[in-house]
Design a protein around this nucleic acid. Structure first.
Lengths: 230, 230
DNA sequence: TAGATTGTTAATCGATTAACAATC
DNA sequence: TAGATTGTTAATCGATTAACAATC
């Protein structure tokens, strides 16, 4: 973002900490590779070259090999990569081989869509609760899950060991929700509200902002109309 | 985020083309500045320093001033920026002072949420049509707009001069929708389907991918659990 | 062995940041 | 004039890419 210019990750490490440091740009592409490998595996492909995988992921092969080199040497020179083996190694590196309980706060149109989103479950993310401050929504079922009061947040985080929260409330309410999430123990937030959230160090925020994406497209579209198109 | 590692913009320019070239990372932040300026203006602030604006936008002031310098000199040394004037200059640069007709294809849960999204209208984006291949949805109204058959795409694009399309169909249908959009004359696509789209040169695609955002958060969350948190 | 393809190096490119001269 | 703050420079940092030695 760019793209990622999206989130700040200030994570100090002790000198003895042996965890490899993977560049942020690479981290953002690993899920893309994972998806491409899953598609290849589903299509019956057992082995692939960096060129094949790069094409499927929409990047060039030099970048792909450089990215994979941060994880280790999981390929075979002259041969390529075992699809299933590489898929597992990337999944393990990202952390999606484990279960990630998630809460969604704000069950409006977007919250509905998120709750019904099938990509959650298939990637190790499990929606443990849907919360909304509007009591007229409580007891209603969305995607098979009962909507509960926002005030249940702390209890739910504690009981389910929730680390990731999704914010889909209106902009004016988002900072309050973030504050409550952080004090409840959540340390990763996916924010759909069009506002800059302030969080303490150690808490990661990523934002998804429809309006910004459209404006970036508009900027380039405007240029096409004036300058010479490609 | 990153960045904005998200979209590729291959736009060749002739040497005589006087259009300033703004770095992609800067383009991605202009909408954030625009929003911050609108918030300041709404709060009654008439003038602000780069430090103030940077804080509101969640960046540091050096970056902000560098970004603004690509647009021109719209501040006053020793004084700061006129909020309304700078707001207008950025809006003009992005292109949101003009009207952008948009079509949304795929009126499921997400399409519903997008159609109802208030940030569209307020930023110069006007939803001219909601399309879906499922005929049981046709004639239904969503956000006050009647859902029409996907086959009406070409006619709608032609009649409304649509340049921007939003794809919120399932992954398996997304490439077909993109192909139809491109051949109908759309040259900017915002894609919510979890798939890598292939488009001809000159067409911009930006993707919004919930599953990838969550996986990036999971990666960092996993690290916090092992290494030393900040 | 010959052909293929990885993993790594080094060059290039673009983005960020601090510092400060320009100037209100 | 003195203080404040922009716009720009230059250094640094991180990401991308091409090329190729390593090696299957």
């Amino acid at each position: 973002m760019p793209g990622n210019e999206r989130a700040t990750h200030v994570t100090a490490r002790t000198p003895t900490d042996a965890v490899r440091d993977i560049p942020e740009a690479t981290v953002a592409r690993l899920p893309v590779y994972l998806r491409a490998l899953t598609a290849l595996a589903d299509g019956g492909t057992v082995s692939c070259s960096s060129e094949q995988l790069a094409t499927a992921a929409g990047v060039n092969s030099a970048k792909l090999r450089k990215d994979l080199s941060y994880l280790g040497s999981y390929g075979t020179r002259g041969v390529g990569y075992d699809v299933e083996y590489l898929r597992y190694q990337i999944a393990r590196e990202i952390g999606v081989t484990q279960d990630w309980p998630v809460v969604i706060v704000g069950i409006g149109n977007l919250g509905h869509a998120l709750a019904n989103f099938s990509g959650f479950r298939s990637r190790g993310f499990r929606v443990v609760a849907l919360l909304d401050a509007d009591h007229t929504l409580h007891e209603q079922q969305v995607a098979g899950i009962v909507v509960r009061p926002f005030d249940d947040l702390e209890q739910i985080v504690r009981e389910n060991d929730v680390a990731i929260g999704v914010i889909s409330v209106p902009a004016f309410a988002a900072q309050d929700v973030a504050d409550r999430m952080v004090s409840a123990g959540i340390s990763s937030i996916l924010n759909f509200a069009p506002i800059v959230l302030t969080v303490p160090p150690g808490v990661d925020v990523r934002k998804v902002d429809l309006s910004i994406e459209l404006q970036i497209l508009a900027y380039h579209e405007q240029r096409k109309a004036h300058g010479e198109p490609v």
